[in-house]
Design a protein around this nucleic acid. Structure first.
Lengths: 192, 192
DNA sequence: TGGCAAAACCATACATCGCTCGGTTTTCAA
DNA sequence: TTGAAAACCGAGCGATGTATGGTTTTGCCA
């Protein structure tokens, strides 16, 4: 499933690389993690590792893609109430600082239009915006949310708050990300 | 003023490095800017440049520190109404994408406690939080803001929104950062 | 079941990076 | 005028990401 024509061994190895890389980054931090180190951790040479991912940045992108897939399943994004899943994901994030570092670094680096992961993040934000705005629309339709609210802007503000709070949390772990986002939700839903 | 014991020439050169580096980064983007390139741009060798800044990361940190100083003066942060200055800074940011890239990258990299710029950003956030919360307290005292609001949390949410919107704006420049932050302000001040 | 194309994987090498070291030249106060 | 410190450089080191040209392993199908 990794690529067309992959052997069973290759598919398993690719998966092993992703999960192992996640561990190494979580333990060593994003800055101090090199391709050689990741290759060693899965018993491959650097060239052997780069057979599966054409560059370091693509490897990191795929790690984050897999994270999204796992989170989507684990926290029941599409079936439950998305706002609840959103809070759960944020709470969970404070237990995987390495991933937060990786995400923050790669998503900002991808701001450059030439960055290999640029398209990935552009699409990611589109998807999350759509998901969030759809949820807000449902809340409005159910009468639980002021119909005068600009749900497009609010959707962007929620994503921005989640990202920005990660930066603050990395600098000062005493900041409770989920609590802050919950307060933003309170600000929006108050005065029914 | 740059360091104790600097000669006049050195002080001027240090200043030239900062302003030139700013231009180069704005033009080439943060990723593609190396120390060698910056050294060339000011007519120095790399070793010559690193006489003024002990590392690349310290140079970038000093660029951002200078940016803060210039913005503080230009937009009248301490004398005018801080919220207005805040909007102006954000509007101005969309005209200096290179700086936004640099800030986003360095501030997230500094999340690692071992990063050379870690202390700088920790302190920076403390300062901005203090400034912002003070402003919110004044608004409450003047009766222009609901006294029940948690101004500490709101302060953090504003900083987070400003940061997170930069990420979104880099990925999609059609996003109006200032407009979104203004809408957040509207959400907080509505229903006086 | 044996052959063979493609996948899996490696050793080596290369360009570039940030940075250090040991020096020379320039500045400027005493 | 002098000399100590600042300003600056050439050369090179170790580490990084990645390209190249190969060998070994896998598994489909004839």
């Amino acid at each position: 499933m990794a690529r067309r024509g992959s052997y069973a061994k290759g598919v398993a190895k690719r998966e092993e690389i992703l999960t192992t890389a996640l561990d190494v980054i979580a333990r060593n931090g994003y800055r101090r993690t090199s391709v050689r180190e990741l290759a060693d951790a899965v018993g491959l040479s650097q060239a052997g590792l780069l057979h599966y991912f054409s560059s370091k940045e693509e490897l990191f992108q795929e790690i984050l893609r897999k994270r999204d897939e796992v989170d989507t399943e684990t926290f029941d994004i599409h079936t439950g109430r998305p706002i609840e899943a959103f809070f759960q994901v944020i709470r969970h994030n404070s237990e995987v600082p390495g991933l937060v570092q990786l995400y923050a670094q790669l998503s900002t680096a991808a701001g450059d239009a030439d960055h290999p992961a640029h398209a990935f993040f552009v699409e990611r934000y589109v998807q999350f915006r759509t998901l969030f705005v759809g949820m807000l629309r449902d809340e409005q339709a159910a009468g639980r949310l002021d119909p005068d609210l600009d749900i497009d802007r609010i959707g962007n503000l929620f994503l921005a708050a989640a990202d920005g709070l990660q930066t603050q949390w990395m600098l000062d772990p005493s900041i409770d990300m989920a609590e802050h986002v919950a307060y933003l939700w309170h600000l929006i839903t108050r005065k029914g």
